Simulated scan of single mutants.
Amino acid sequence: MSVLSVLMAAIAPGVALMSYFYLKDRYDPEPISLVLKLFLFGVLLVFPVMVLQRALVQGLGENPFVFSFLTSAGIEEFFKWFLVYFIIFKHTSFDEPYDGIVYAVATSLGFATLENVLYAFLNDSGFSALMMRAFLPVSGHAMFGVIMGYHLGKAKFSPDGGNKHLLLALVLPLFWHGVFDYTMLVTKTYWIWFMVPLMAFLWMRSLWKVNRANAKSPLRVIHPEDQVKI
């Protein structure tokens, strides 16, 4: 494969998934510039995360459990959560629950896209390897972003301040990311028997969260087609 072909194949899954979740915003699509800003911040996040992960590996070793839940998932999900919370949570454009999903997915997929590009070039990956990564790590990051964004949306519009959902927005993606990584590390020869059900569950759960977040939009009442006919 040419350099351009590898680059396009590495970038395409993240862009496609971002487009999919952006278009799922039924009532008030977010400003493209703001979504791209979060995507770019996710890209830039790769570099400090890589430095911290390298330091943790040197200090803590590569025990599969510690690596999966702390070095990998812990660092990555905390920084993604931190970015989304401090950049967008109080922004005026965050005006309905689904917006949390859009912005968290943008950050997650920005991170996953550069990670995929680096993997492609550093490992001299072929097309089949990149497609496998599209269905696993890149898709996984999108699912973790949906979980994070769903609970950020709940926190934003919760009448009691939403501290519980702010915590869940960090803990749940971290947990599922850790499960994903741990499964890949300890089931090297028969991982497909575990990963297919796991990814199917995460996708079904994420699509449910997407529909539920849209259903809770305060803007829904102005759309006649969503009114229940009596």
Rank of each mutant, 00 (worst) to 15 (best):
L170D: 07
V171L: 15
L167Y: 08
H177K: 06
L152K: 01
P197I: 02
L207W: 10
F144T: 00
N211H: 13
M184D: 06
R205Q: 12
P218K: 10
R212N: 14
P197Q: 03
K209M: 15
M199C: 04
G162F: 05
V221R: 15
N163Y: 09
L174E: 13
W191Q: 13
F144V: 00
A142F: 05
L152W: 04
A215S: 14
K164G: 03
F201N: 08
L174T: 14
P173A: 08
L166P: 00
F180I: 05
K216Y: 04
V171N: 10
T189D: 15
H165I: 00
R212K: 12
F180V: 00
W191H: 13
L152E: 01
M199S: 08
W176D: 06
G145I: 02
A142D: 03
A215P: 01
F194P: 03
A213G: 04
L219K: 15
G162Y: 06
T189R: 14
W208C: 00
K216W: 03
T183H: 03
V179L: 12
L167A: 13
L174I: 06
K164T: 12
F175M: 13
F175W: 09
Y150W: 02
G145N: 08
L166T: 01
R220Y: 11
V179H: 02
M204V: 09
M199G: 03
K209V: 12
T183A: 07
L202T: 01
S158T: 03
D160R: 10
V146H: 03
Y150G: 02
L174D: 10
G161S: 09
L219M: 15
L168T: 05
V210L: 07
A169W: 03
T189V: 13
F157N: 03
W193V: 10
P173W: 02
M195T: 07
S217T: 02
K156A: 13
H151L: 05
I147S: 04
G161H: 11
A213P: 03
A142H: 04
L185S: 04
P218A: 13
A155C: 06
M148R: 06
R220P: 06
D181H: 01
F157S: 06
L172T: 09
Y190M: 11
W208Q: 01
L202F: 03
F180C: 03
I222D: 14
P197V: 01
S217F: 07
A142K: 05
F194K: 05
A169E: 01
L174G: 09
V146C: 08
W208D: 06
N211G: 13
D160N: 12
G178K: 01
T189S: 15
L219G: 13
L168D: 08
A169G: 02
L168Y: 11
T187I: 04
M204Q: 08
P159W: 11
P218G: 10
G178H: 01
K164D: 10
I147Q: 02
R220W: 08
V146A: 08
I222M: 15
F157G: 05
K209R: 14
L166F: 01
K209W: 14
T187G: 07
P218I: 06
G149T: 04
H177N: 04
D160H: 06
K188T: 15
W193F: 13
V221L: 15
M204N: 05
V146M: 09
K154S: 11
P159C: 12
M184K: 11
G149P: 07
I192M: 14
S217A: 07
R205N: 11
K164F: 08
Y182P: 00
I222Y: 15
